[in-house]
Structure formats: structure tokens, C-alpha cells
Design a protein around this nucleic acid. Sequence first.
DNA 1: CAGTGGTCTAGACCACCAC
DNA 2: TGGTGGTCTAGACCACTGC
Lengths: 241, 241
Amino acid sequence: MADLIYQKIIESLKKEIDSGAFPDMRLPDERSLAENYHVSRSSIKRALGNMSEQGIIFKKRGAGTFVNPLYLKQDSYFNYSGKNLGITDSFKANGQKPGIKVLSFDVIRPDEELRDNLFLNKGEFVYAFKRLRLLDEVPFMVETGYIPIKLAPELSEQVASESVFNYVESELGKEVNKTYLTISAQPSDEEGQKLLNLKNTEPVGIMEGIFFLNDGTPFEFSTMKLHYKYFKYDSFVDLDR
Amino acid sequence: MADLIYQKIIESLKKEIDSGAFPDMRLPDERSLAENYHVSRSSIKRALGNMSEQGIIFKKRGAGTFVNPLYLKQDSYFNYSGKNLGITDSFKANGQKPGIKVLSFDVIRPDEELRDNLFLNKGEFVYAFKRLRLLDEVPFMVETGYIPIKLAPELSEQVASESVFNYVESELGKEVNKTYLTISAQPSDEEGQKLLNLKNTEPVGIMEGIFFLNDGTPFEFSTMKLHYKYFKYDSFVDLDR
DNA sequence: CAGTGGTCTAGACCACCAC
DNA sequence: TGGTGGTCTAGACCACTGC
């Protein structure tokens, strides 16, 4: 992957941070980094700016660049705001074996709301599938997805049982790289209690949203219900925008 | 505010987009923009990159830069504005009257974890306060906050009963503009059930994190427990970083 | 092939912080 | 006052898209 200079620097600095190379939480100044990495200061700035947006570090003008202490304590399952971790991959990173069980797979006529969300015209159809996701054989999430058939004509139950996004990349030559998510929580319903092995006092976390291809096409509308113990979402937010 | 070149360009382009100046959803190319605005291409790139992160536009290498149709369509679902944090202002917009009831207000010695989160040395003290937030007199959120006394020496119960962040801006001349949030859900505990009027089957949403000043100083560590019906978090995410 | 966005460099100058 | 991050410029070269 990363044959880009700023990405390599990000990876390198992340490793250093993770390994505790900066016990005083302070990174070297930009000019020294540029010299040591044999790159321009602009490339360093780009790398650091990127890491700052991800919440890994923060910069204090006139003072220096520092590690965000919360980053080191991070133990979220879903870290969309970091390096690209597809859902599956992010679980691998935690050392647990992910699994998928397809509960249903159909082609349906979308209702008006779904048509709106996926920018579809009347008369167009979508794949509808429900999947149970597991970690080390333990179910933790029920996922309902809708994908326009015109965007993935060869989609199948087989594909759904593996990775849809990998299929998009390898077979369609496109990439899913953006998503609008709405996050909320609800008491568990009967289905959730049964599939996720929850008591009736235990809730589910909901992540619902649209996934986009790099050209801006809405690709999938998805609703994810998570066992509350696996529901953790980290977000670094710039408030003045 | 914006006396920065790239910010002025962002404002200008936003206005043009909102006014429908690009009916084909396509923006001029970067080199033309640089010429028309009499700035370098780098500044244009910075402005466009920023707008892309906000989900206003998306860029296609080799093809051009385009308006994100969802940005124009933002009627119902998708407000990715970082301001929707359950902070007072965002609820005003909903036409409901916000209220605050201070449940406690003390000065305490922070434990080690809190010291880490707020970058404090041993021996430094923090304000600790618990607040109940209301909407049209109905409680919806219990908030526990910790703020170093050295950062807000004049903080008081009175201030806490209004807006701490407004106080920071008007009295300290600083601005809270970043936050690192961890979002999760839990069954409601006894306190939550009592204060938020929840059944034992009904959960709370948890938003926990650090708020930073513009200079990068960690200003407040806050834990917010929300009535699940009021718990909704919108997020626009760039997956490939 | 022409046009477009992506990356990277080298360097100037500014704004802020700590000593 | 010296060191730090922030902004901006000017220009080179690369990678991809679409005709």
C-alpha cells in the first residue's frame, strides 16, 4: 500500500506513538522531522495535519505537537475515523475471528424513503439482505442492507456471506470510501434478544446510513443493530465548521 | 473571522453552491479557480479539500470536482454538522426550550486517569459538576463535567447553570472547537432511571470525551448520559485515511 | 492526447509560546 | 528572543479520465 510519502510518515509515527517512543507525549518539531525523514516540511505538515484530524495528536502553535492521551486508551470496535478499517478488518485487528451468517437474501421493490436514500427512480429494484455477524462464533450484530441491482448486477448470497465491499473493489473496480451515519440506541426488540442473546433490559446500538462510492454514487443503505457491549464509536469532531 | 484566504474561498464557493451557480453540479477546475480568485492553486486545493471533508463536494481525479447532491438535499436526515452534540444551541434550533439544573458543583482532586485526560500535574485541582439538562422542562440528559481550575479560575455554579462554553468565549477569549468523543450505549442505571424517567428496559446513550480549546489545550472532560430517545449522532466519515 | 486532480518540494513570512 | 506551528506561494511532475 502506502507508497505515498505522507502516508508512510503517518504509519511510522503511529508505530512510534504506539510503542511509547514519546514518553513525554511530545513529538519532535516539524523541521527536525522533515530533516530526519529526508522530506519537505510540507509533507510533514500534511502527515501531522492528517493525524490531527484523526485525533491521534494535537498541535499547539508556538509550543509543539503532542499525542492525544485518549488515542492511546482507544479500544473501540468501530473506528471509522482512523485508518481505513472495513468493519471486518477492524475486528481482525482486535485479534478476534469475524464470521458472517446470511439470514436472508432477496430482490425487492424499494419504498419511497429507500429510493430517496439511494437516489433511485421508480421501477428500479434493490437487493435486500440480512446478515448476522459473529466474533469468535459469538453473534454481536444484525445488519440489514439494500443495494441497487444496477450497481452490483452480479451480487449473490455467496458474495454477501463474504465481503460486499471487497467484491466492489475487486470485481467492479470501484471503492466505497464515504458514509453518512446516524447513530442511536434502542431497547432490544424480540429479534435482537434472540439473535444477539440479550436480556430485555439490555439495549442495542444502531448505526444507520448510506455508503458511497468514490464517484459520489450512493451504493448501500444499511442498518446495523449491535449488541451494546460491542457498540463503541470514536469520533473526533471539529466544532467550528 | 475569516481573514484567511482558504476560508474566504470556502465561504464564497458555499454561497455559489447554495445559490445554484453550478447547475451541472460541477465546479470549475482548480487552475481556473486559482486564476479567478488571484491565489495559488495550493490555496484552492486547501479550500476544496476542506469542503470535501465536510461532505459538501467530492473530487474525481481526472474528471473534476462536483457538488454532493446530499449537501443540497439536506432536508431531513443528514446533518453532519459537528454542532449536533447535544449542546444547548442545537436544541434551540428544534424549537424546544433548553434548561439546566445544577445537581452538584465542587472542587476536587482528580484521580490519575482524569489527570491524564486533562494533561494535569499532580496537585492541580478541577471543578467537578453534575448537571441535568432539560427540554421544555423534560429532563433528557445527565452530564458530569471536569474542568481544571487553572483554565477557568472564575467558574461558578452560576456559570454552570448557564453556558460554560459561552463563558469561555466571552470571558476568557478562547474557543472550544474540538472534541474527541467515545459513543456507546448501556442499560439505564438507577440514577438514570430516576433522573431521566426511564423504565429498566430503556437504555441511555453515552457520549464521553474531552473538549479542547483552539490552542489544543484539553479543557473539559465530560460524560453525558442521554435518554435514548434524545440520543442521535450524525457523522460524515471519510473511510480511506 | 488534453485536461484534471494528487503529490511533493523549497522557501518566505506570520502568529504564538515559553524562557 | 528563539523556537514552534500556520499560511501561502510557485512550480514540477505524476496518475487518472474521457473523448
